[in-house]
Design a protein around this nucleic acid. Structure first.
Lengths: 210, 210
DNA sequence: TAATAAGTAAAACATCTGTTTAAACTAAAT
DNA sequence: ATTTAGTTTAAACAGATGTTTTACTTATTA
């Protein structure tokens, strides 16, 4: 296995566990069993390494996601549950791509949104805008009455739900395990998440201030 | 104004803007115009300073919140919207307490959940458990069919929505401002948030896997 | 095979971090 | 007026961080 790949593998493991800020290059290179200078030699900087780790996943996920979202959009009357369910298969396919791929990617996504003051948000939205466009179009078709600004907010709420849940999913799964005495997999969490966000985005339009 | 208060004021500003890990003691003490050693002298450590900053808000918020949640719980048939609306008044009251108090507190809360691997979660849940207990009891009365484990997950999803939205609320409000050409206040965001989380927690119980 | 490029290695660099020390200053109490 | 306790100050400490340099080794190309 090449030095580059050894670094990427070690980095994604440590990044997903401890965040980007919480992981030093020395930890990465010692887990990867390569020289410290190798990161800067192969990737240029830590920031570029983070991008490379994310790109490896996004390049795998992005086409699948666009395809399933297009299928939903092609339907006559898609429901919001169907829109959000379009994420399930592409996300679970990441487990074929890499061990624990789904879980690692979602945790990386969570880390990226909270660590490093949103530079990863910028990276994803500018590098993979089609995913977002398809998603918005599908939501719009499922709930046409939802005006753009309200949709903007609800999609960000949804992003928050997913990202936060996933960045702390290990901790939450541990708590659930000990409290309810049966194990929970990341797929189970996704299954619980979908009705929640579908209902949230699909909430009736009304002024709650009286 | 005492050195202690100067430090607290400077710290909450920088913490809410840049996170706990993203703020150094030197930045805090230079904004506060006090000596670097003053933090360790008055608070003992950076960790204790973080706790002190959060406690100042929680001691103001906690009793109000318990009171409004008790009022909702006293109702014959509270709705989930009413439960979540119980947060509005106590949160907005923080604006009387300190300039921009609502916004700063919610951002601090967001930072605390994502920075510093959940030690603040532990601090809040062990130091202010009554708030959580009252909240869970109120949700249970509004939606008795929701079994404990499902509720556990949905409440954490809700936490994610709120915390994530608030920790990046400044950025989101800026985007919304430029995209939809009218200003948005933190109160407006809260008003949009409530129907979303109420619908999410209130989502019908069903197995979406076919 | 010789020459060139690509990759690896150890060490140092410069900067930043939270914390501690020890001396200086201030104000109240004896 | 002198002691005492509380507070502030500048300086240093000890460790971690990302990055760069320099020398060395391996692989590729002519």
């Amino acid at each position: 296995m090449s030095t580059k790949d050894k670094i990427l593998d070690a980095a994604e493991k440590l990044f997903s566990d401890n965040g980007f800020n919480g992981t030093s290059l020395r930890e990465i290179t010692s887990l990867a069993e390569v020289n410290l200078a190798a990161v800067n030699y192969h990737f240029g900087s830590k920031k570029e390494l983070i991008k490379a780790v994310m790109s490896r996943y996004m390049n795998e996920l992005s086409p699948r996601l666009i395809s399933t979202l297009e299928s939903v959009q092609a339907k006559d009357k898609p429901t919001l549950t169907e829109v959000f369910s379009a994420f399930v298969e592409p996300l679970l396919a990441l487990n074929q791509f890499r061990d624990n791929g789904t879980s690692i990617f979602l945790q990386l996504l969570g880390r990226g949104y909270t660590d490093s003051q949103g530079f990863l948000r910028w990276f994803l939205t500018t590098k993979y805008p089609q995913v977002i466009e398809h998603f918005i179009a599908a939501v719009q078709k499922a709930y046409p009455e939802l005006e753009p600004e309200e949709m903007f907010w609800r999609l960000h709420f949804t992003m928050g739900t997913v990202v936060f849940t996933m960045s702390s999913s290990d901790a939450l799964i541990d708590i659930a395990k000990s409290d309810y005495e049966h194990s929970v997999r990341i797929e189970d969490v996704i299954d619980k998440l979908i009705p929640y966000v579908a209902a949230g985005v699909g909430a009736p339009l009304q002024d709650i201030r009286q």
